[in-house]
Amino acid sequence: MHTERLEEYLETILYLIMKNQGPAKTKQIADELNVAPPSVTEMIKKLSSMGFVEHIPYKGVELTYKGTEKAIKIKRKHQVLETFLADVLDLDRKVAHREACELEHAVSDHVLERLYEFLGSPEYCPDGHPINIDKCTLGEQERFIPLDEMKEGSSGTVARVTLPREAKERLNSLGILTGKEIEVRRKQKQGCISVIAVGSEIALGRDVAKKIFITPCGGSS
């Protein structure tokens, strides 16, 4: 349990550093983990003594080289497990995320790599983020949302599609390409979403729309 808690902190700090593009604030860590700020302060001291983090007065918490390596490894475990739960077991994204949080601390490196191979070595997790990040790309926090979460009348640019190759090629032939603009025309009760791409209206099922990630125009969603 002690190791599990340490890993949760490191993963949370990594997430906040990527989100902030700078140090993680103590209050942010407390809010993310739903704990009291004094508990965060105590854990930060412990992580610092272990060489995982550095606390910068008035700025926040940074990961050391050692801490970054550890946090990236934990994050990757989470993403691979979440991909399996969402894509193979067909769990809802939020449920898959929650379950992956529980499993990531127990699965061995060997099992994880076998699972990653079984999945076909995917590039992205169900949230559209790269699975194999490195220290050079930590500051590159992309701003996108799944197409199925966009509102009627909103538009944006296709950031990436995380569907299998055949399905992706089919969408490409319809004009849904990375870097191209797309507009949500209608969202129907049965889950279908009608979009405008390269001047044509296309109907997409929710299972497809949730794998298309959009960078909204003007921050709309």
Rank of each mutant, 00 (worst) to 15 (best):
V208S: 01
M150Y: 05
K25H: 10
N132Y: 04
S221I: 10
G51L: 02
P164D: 03
K94C: 10
E104K: 08
R185A: 12
M50N: 10
I44Y: 02
D148I: 08
K94W: 08
S154M: 11
K94V: 07
E8C: 13
E62D: 13
G179E: 00
Q79N: 11
E169D: 12
K180I: 09
A100R: 05
G22S: 06
V208G: 02
R143Q: 04
P57E: 05
L119N: 08
I202D: 01
S108C: 09
G153H: 05
A159G: 07
E117F: 07
T137Q: 04
Q190T: 00
R143V: 09
Q21G: 09
A209W: 04
F52S: 01
L119S: 06
A24L: 07
A30M: 08
T68R: 00
L89G: 07
G218R: 05
F84H: 02
S155D: 08
Q79K: 13
Y116K: 08
V195L: 09
L14F: 03
T83A: 14
K189P: 07
K59C: 02
K73Y: 12
S48L: 04
E142W: 06
S220F: 03
L119H: 15
P122V: 03
L171K: 04
I176N: 03
P57G: 03
R76F: 06
H97E: 11
K180S: 14
N132G: 05
E152R: 02
K66W: 09
N34W: 10
H97D: 14
R170D: 05
G139D: 15
I145Y: 12
K46Y: 13
P122S: 11
I214W: 03
Q79A: 12
T137L: 14
H110S: 09
H55E: 13
H110V: 10
C125R: 05
I29D: 10
K46T: 05
E123S: 12
T64H: 02
M18Q: 13
K25V: 03
M150N: 04
E7F: 05
S154T: 13
M18G: 07
L204H: 02
R160G: 06
C136H: 14
L85S: 03
F144D: 00
L47S: 09
Q188P: 01
S200A: 09
H105N: 12
H97R: 15
V184G: 01
L16E: 06
I182L: 12
L147M: 10
D92I: 13
K168S: 14
F118G: 07
E142H: 15
L63Q: 06
S154D: 15
L47F: 09
C101K: 15
